[in-house]
Design a binder for these strands. Structure first.
Lengths: 236, 236
DNA sequence: TCAAAAGTGTTCCTTCTACACCCATGT
DNA sequence: ACATGGGTGTAGAAGGAACACTTTTGA
């Protein structure tokens, strides 16, 4: 509930305002989130927005500060507040997606990337943000092109399929997946090939549109993943 | 201005915090929203949460105060903040659904219900909330059982179909609609009939579950409605 | 007997799913 | 020549869309 346990206690009767950012990437161990390993327990990254700084900008900024690189995609998740009784604290949470080629955090910050299945956060609000963000990410994989923001500029269809499998948490049929991608208009071939092993080279693709809203994909094949965690809304 | 919550000692000018609630009902003219007619222009209802009062409770409370009745359903929409430059104001917005049998607002409050197509709000944030809320409501009609919260305890299939048509903004095939409802498990017959004209009486139904999360319906037949207004996120 | 809404099936088409083999390459 | 991942088609099932007439009642 207290987002910033380390700083001042009830200083303001007026609300304290903080943002929490939940960063994801596709790393070696699949879908990974970044968190802060601290003496008191694991936490997500949080910040107090500057005066006059829009919340969305603050989410962008703190991501940049921690990782030296802006996320590919930032989206507001939900606004939590403190449990009744405590001094009010309002926490606006954000999802941030990074590409695989995102830099490692500087060690001094204590940020760690870990597989989403092996993160256990200490404070309730942080857990809520994590659970909800993960659910929402999975849901959006089912019906938007949000996957793009986790992949580098160009990639193979196998890369893309793997991204889906890692996020959705279940395997996807190769031929059906490729047909679906082909019949959507969101991919185009770069013309390049990638040779990276003792096997046939793979065609490289890029996304044909920068538009996040556009290009919805079909839902049902992702359904198995929606039965995960907490919260209300949207998502699907 | 780069400030990190974990090390932050700076005292910012405290943010102002408000909630805005966007109430919907199905009235005589179809889908209606309630707003406040004021000298300066039309506004949505808003409030400052009491100290220690959770945001969700505040949304519930203000609805009750204005309408003398709690909404059937309340959902957080999005959190906006003031445009850069101005003193910070954080606005957490909510959607509230009322049944047809919701009371009229007391006249003194200046609240009016109007068809959603004929409301034009004055302030930018209010317009944002309205546009986003309406889009989200439409989207959710496509894939959840949220419609239930706009209807009375028991209703006919024609009532329900009409609700869908009014919210989605397009007609729906009667036989397909009824088949879909029948094959879902969310409705059950009350056993009662309603006779209300010189025609065959209609069977009454109620919703079989109180669970909002459950019972997703099929998506594609609602698709035409998604091309409406503004904002990011979710919802389709 | 007429008007008005309730109720009911079928056909077509599109989309999803399941499934197995050949291809190009590096070692 | 073999191991490795890249790439391809088809048949059956399920679900969505379009469409028109009969039933029950009150006036």
């Amino acid at each position: 509930m207290a987002v910033d346990a380390t700083t001042d206690q009830v200083r303001w009767a007026p609300p304290r305002l903080a943002i929490i950012v939940l960063p994801f990437r596709l790393g070696a161990s699949g879908l990974e989130a970044a968190y802060l390993r601290e003496p008191g327990g694991d936490r997500l990254m949080s910040a107090v927005p500057g005066p006059g700084e829009p919340l969305d900008d603050a989410a962008q900024r703190i991501s940049h500060e921690k990782f030296g690189r802006s996320p590919q995609y930032v989206e507001q998740l939900y606004t939590f507040d403190s449990r009744p009784g405590a001094a009010r604290e309002v926490v606006v949470s954000y999802l941030a997606l990074f590409r695989q080629d995102a830099l490692e955090p500087s060690a001094g910050d204590g940020m760690r990337w870990s597989d989403v299945t092996s993160i256990s956060l200490n404070e309730a609000v942080h857990r809520d943000v994590f659970d909800y963000g993960l659910m929402r990410l999975k849901a959006k994989f089912g019906y938007t092109n949000i996957a793009f923001h986790l992949l580098p500029e160009s990639f193979t269809l196998s890369d893309l399929q793997l991204a889906y499998e890692e996020v959705l948490g279940h395997p996807v049929d190769k031929r059906n997946f490729r047909r679906r991608m082909a019949s959507s208009t969101i991919l185009e071939r770069t013309g390049e090939m990638r040779r990276d092993g003792s096997h046939r080279p793979a065609a490289l693709y890029r996304f044909a549109t920068r538009d996040d809203q556009a290009a919805y994909l079909t839902p049902s094949w992702a359904a198995a993943s929606l039965s995960s965690s907490s919260q209300d809304d949207d998502e699907p």
